[in-house]
């Protein structure tokens, strides 16, 4: 019998704590509201971008242990804000993360991830060459971007954000991707 009470107590404890927090914290309603609001596509993409870091491997020359991972965002301020909000101040494994706004002609030295927010094929193709040369992971959000040299491209399916991967481009950039990530990719291409 005491054991049953103990179980009940353990089961009710989180509820009690939640109730206490809601009761005591000012602006509890707002908090509850924000929790129920569905995430925007930009925020999902920002979260994905952060999670990609767990699956990508850079060569030692491009990312030393403890070195800051620089994510450079090109041509989409909304995405930049979202990435800033979602990722800034967090770490990926032992690496600190820095978010940087990228302009078309900026040098990619010391940049590990490039996000091209614009659907412009020309911009993507141009950046793809430079990113590949700098061994930076190129993430895009445009149709047919993999063919233009992108490594990972966001796709929207049934209202969900998914992504597709081109292993050929990844390899040419001197990068490797974890298989766990590939298992959830919508499409895995291997361009030669």
């Amino acid at each position: 019998m005491p054991r049953a009470f103990k179980r009940l107590f353990i089961a009710l404890r989180p509820l009690a704590v939640a109730w206490l927090v809601c009761f005591l914290a000012p602006g509890c309603e707002a908090l509850a509201q924000s929790a129920s609001v569905p995430p925007t596509e930009a925020s999902v993409r920002a979260a994905f971008l952060y999670r990609f870091l767990d699956y990508v491997e850079w060569d030692r020359g491009h990312l030393e242990p403890g070195q800051t991972i620089v994510i450079a965002v090109l041509g989409n301020d909304e995405m930049l804000d979202e990435v800033q909000r979602t990722i800034a101040g967090r770490r990926s494994h032992e690496h600190p993360i820095e978010i940087r706004k990228l302009s078309a002609g900026d040098d990619l030295t010391g940049v590990q991830v490039v996000y091209v927010g614009t659907p412009s094929s020309a911009a993507i193709a141009a950046m793809a060459k430079r990113a590949m040369a700098a061994s930076a992971l190129l993430v895009t959000n445009a149709e047919n971007a993999l063919a233009l040299g992108s490594d990972i491209n966001f796709v929207e399916t049934d209202g969900h954000v998914r992504f597709e991967v081109d292993l050929g481009n990844v390899e040419r950039s001197g990068l490797r991707l974890g298989s766990g990530m590939l298992s959830v990719a919508l499409r895995v291409r291997n361009s030669s």
């Binding site: 999670r51 699956y55 974890g178 298992s183 959830v184």
Partner: peptide, 14 residues
């Protein structure tokens, strides 16, 4: 463990 990427990338199908 196999489902960690699926959860991280919000992929119920996987």
């Amino acid at each position: 463990r196999a489902s960690i990427p699926a959860i991280e990338f919000d992929d119920p199908h996987a």
